[in-house]
Design a protein around this nucleic acid. Structure first.
Lengths: 147, 147
DNA sequence: CTGGTTGCAAACTTTTTGCAGCGTC
DNA sequence: GACGCTGCAAAAAGTTTGCAACCAG
């Protein structure tokens, strides 16, 4: 859990403080196996400490994003998902436009392209969490039938 | 404007009707040079016909998405953008996590990868509108200074 | 005519904000 | 002890929905 340490250092560097709530949210983010909504994260945090408020969860997630510990993305359904940016292999999200299912894929061939992009335009892409909209296998098949 | 025709055919195929409002929204979508929010689209439609309601715009945009005429995505700021899926070259969106700026890039090398993805998993990715989160050149530079 | 469509208004969901008290450093 | 942080509650912003009248086919 090296990012725990990284987090504390970032806090200090910015004159901010380490609170139980922030530790709690960070721990919960570690446990996530898939991108989760603010409500889901709140539920997990709340289970560990009932007094934590959801507004604190939002504020903490925002902080994490600034420190690049967490990435946020929205499949397009208006509900933001948050995901821990760990040491896992870079991966991306296939988001089904019809059923909303989110699948993770490695797609490592993408990394060189992104690196090239950065070199060319100065745009620094986040390491992971590319969102690819489309139709999953099930819905793609289903959408052909009725036409 | 072949998609006008496509649209009408899709409507008929689904037992739906062509209304002035739907034509209006489709025209506005054609005029867009960049992804626009529902509010922005509503503003343009409203300028053409003041009586059209924003709920109609939402309903119409949803319809367009079902017909694959329009793609929706969310840079992560909680505000959905809509974009016409036309005959333009496939392109993607660089979304700055700090300033929210959306830049379009061609990045054509990506298409083979996506095609490969489809073949492998059955997931049918939308032709355009990949959202790549990160930091734009300006914000990336700025974020290094204060640390 | 029939049934899909619309505008209006109100409801809903998700996220943000103001503030007084609390707790970290 | 100072100042950042929290919980609460209320507001804001974006989107959806119910319904009666409307109009395209």
């Amino acid at each position: 859990m090296a990012c725990q340490e990284y987090f504390v250092r970032q806090l200090h560097a910015h004159g901010l403080r380490l609170t139980p709530q922030r530790e709690l949210v960070l721990n919960v983010m570690h446990q996530l196996e898939a991108p989760a909504t603010a409500e889901e994260i709140y539920a997990r945090v709340h289970a560990l400490s009932a007094s934590v408020d959801i507004s604190t969860v939002y504020r903490t997630l925002e902080l994490f994003q600034e420190f690049n510990l967490v990435a946020a993305f929205d499949p397009g359904d208006g509900i933001r998902r948050y995901e821990h940016l760990g040491v896992e292999a870079p991966h991306h999200h296939l988001v089904c436009r019809a059923c909303g299912k989110v699948t993770q894929v490695a797609l490592e061939e993408l990394q060189p392209l992104i690196a090239h992009l950065t070199a060319a335009s100065g745009f620094v892409a986040d390491a992971v969490a590319l969102t690819i909209p489309g139709l999953c296998a099930v819905c793609a098949t289903a959408s052909e039938t009725p036409l």
